[in-house]
């Protein structure tokens, strides 16, 4: 992939990286953008620097550990006023899998302003370039005035694990996804009309375990990896859906009906009697099976 820089800047834009305690995944992928021609930040008119005071764009990785905080803030204070700050990977935004630890002091935004987020765990180099391009655009817009423009990117059909997608129509509300999610990215809420699932792309680490254990395929991993966004939009980066309640055909209690996918998984060839089970509440199902409700 090559993203063409719009103007051939003579003075390169300098990138400075701070690792706030990452697993090193994001950092190793950033190293790729300084070493591998196809992904070299040079194509965007950028170059890495080892001096904080030269940072035009600041790239921050990791969940911000308590131990690293002082050093991170010291380096941050050395960077120029007008730099653009980019959170690389989900760690700085939500803590990723490390959230809720005594040793982690994120999110980064509590300590310093962030301009652009690049979700991923780690983001692939194409996504890093897209996020850096977004930061460049923001930098240009700030200097020249006007609104930043989001660039279209060449699409590749590589089977990367990207954004999770949720199909409420086949969800049976078993909540195994939430149980297996290491990042706490999935939340269920029982509302007036149904149960809703919310999945936060800035928390998700794209491991795909939820979709692996989902019995009906309601959650699936898509190849959509372009998730960079202005940090102000962080809370809009969600996947959401509602499974509506339906009245139990036996007693009328509102229930979550079983999806046809579940019946097929459980019974292979469901007969009409089994089909009827899906619209019964547990008490009425017991009644149907053993004649009396179990106590």
């Amino acid at each position: 992939m090559h993203i063409q820089a719009e103007e051939n800047a003579i003075v390169p834009v300098r990138l400075f990286r701070i690792n706030t305690g990452s697993c090193n995944g994001c950092d190793v992928e950033l190293a790729v953008t300084s070493a591998v021609t196809e992904f070299d930040v040079e194509q965007l008119g950028c170059r890495y620097t080892e001096a904080a005071r030269e940072a035009d764009i600041l790239l921050i990785t990791g969940p911000l550990t308590v131990r690293a905080r002082e050093e991170v803030l010291r380096l941050y204070a050395e960077t120029p006023q007008d730099k653009v700050t980019v959170a690389v990977g989900v760690c700085p935004v939500s803590g990723g899998v490390f959230r809720d630890s005594y040793a982690v002091d994120g999110p980064l935004e509590r300590h310093l302003p962030v301009d652009v987020n690049i979700p991923g765990c780690p983001p692939r180099p194409q996504a890093l370039l897209a996020g850096i391009a977004e930061a460049l655009e923001l930098r240009r817009a700030r200097r020249e005035g006007g609104a930043p423009v989001r660039r279209a990117l060449p699409v590749d059909n590589f089977p990367a694990r990207g954004r999770l997608s949720y199909d409420a129509g086949s969800c049976v509300d078993c909540r195994i996804c939430r149980h297996v999610c290491a990042a706490g990215a999935i939340r269920f809420e029982e509302g007036e009309t149904g149960v809703s699932l919310t999945l936060w792309h800035n928390s998700c680490v794209f491991c795909g375990l939820c979709s692996h254990y989902c019995p009906t395929g309601a959650l699936s991993v898509t190849g959509d990896w372009r998730l960079d966004h202005p940090a102000a939009d962080a809370f809009r980066q969600v996947e959401r859906g509602e499974v509506p309640y339906a009245p139990c055909v036996g007693c009328g209690e509102p229930i979550i009906p079983a999806a046809p996918q579940l019946l097929h998984a459980a019974f292979r060839r469901p007969n009409p009697d089994i089909e009827r089970l899906k619209s019964l509440c547990p008490a009425c199902r017991q009644q149907m099976s053993i004649g009396v409700p179990r106590r």
């Binding site: 697993c23 550990t65 131990r67 899998v97 490390f98 040793a103 780690p122 297996v180 290491a182 375990l209």
Partner: peptide, 30 residues
């Protein structure tokens, strides 16, 4: 040492076996 101390020993005891697979994969990416 200590800059990358994320409290893993504490975290693994608060995650179930499934979650720990994903968490431990991020103990170190290399």
């Amino acid at each position: 040492p200590g800059q990358v101390h994320r409290g893993m020993e504490h975290l693994v005891m608060r995650r179930n076996f499934y979650q720990n697979i994903t968490l431990l994969e991020r103990l170190c990416s290399l």
